[in-house]
């Protein structure tokens, strides 16, 4: 019994010292980490909607109303510049070949896609994973309307050998553009 208390006390002392030192390190680093994460999120958003300088998150209720029950809608932002709305950014998930492709899509008030970035994906390396490469995602900027792959008579060059990944990405962009239109009241 005495041993039991002694062991407990020793472990407690070690844990308390560890906890205090961790709290100190955390307080020093968390500010930097948060600032960096926010900056990174901003950077991705600035890429898909270059004209905006400020991004205002859209409340979940409003977003689900705009998406009309569509699946895989993560979050959305209104892009602002000098106080007026210049476009919208929607983060969506779309089924690819190896899993979900998460992407950020930006659209201006004219309904023109301003850019697309793949945030995360689990496609085949060397094939479908190329959706996150510039030759593929770069095609979306400046496109308007409902998009589809060239081999279906559309505007987007699919990745050869990775039709499902390409289709998934295009479907995601279409979904995001639709929601962005609803959000901007178009």
């Amino acid at each position: 019994m005495r041993d039991f208390i002694r062991y407990g006390a020793i472990l407690t002392v070690i844990c308390v010292i560890s906890g205090v030192s961790l709290a100190f390190v955390y307080s020093k680093t968390s500010v930097i980490i948060e600032a960096r994460q926010a900056k990174e999120a901003m950077k991705a958003m600035a890429v898909v909607l270059p004209s905006a300088t400020d991004f205002e998150p859209i409340p979940a209720i409003e977003l689900s109303a705009a998406s009309g029950g569509a699946q895989g809608v993560v979050e959305a932002y209104l892009g602002k510049a000098a106080g007026s709305t210049v476009g919208a950014i929607v983060k969506v998930e779309s089924a690819g070949y190896g899993g979900m492709i998460t992407m950020l899509v930006g659209m201006d008030t004219q309904g023109v896609c301003q850019g697309m970035q793949v945030i995360s994906q689990s496609e085949t390396p060397g094939l479908g994973a190329n959706v996150k490469e510039e030759p593929f995602y770069g095609q979306f900027a400046g496109k308007k309307g409902v998009l589809s792959l060239v081999k279906e008579g559309g505007q987007i060059d699919g990745i050869s050998g990775a039709t499902i990944s390409s289709k998934g990405a295009v479907a995601g962009v279409n979904k995001a553009l639709n929601i962005a239109k609803a959000l901007l009241g178009m």
Partner: peptide, 10 residues
């Protein structure tokens, strides 16, 4: 944890 946090920050 100290390494992890410092690495994430710097």
């Amino acid at each position: 944890t100290i390494v992890d946090l410092s690495m994430a920050a710097y």
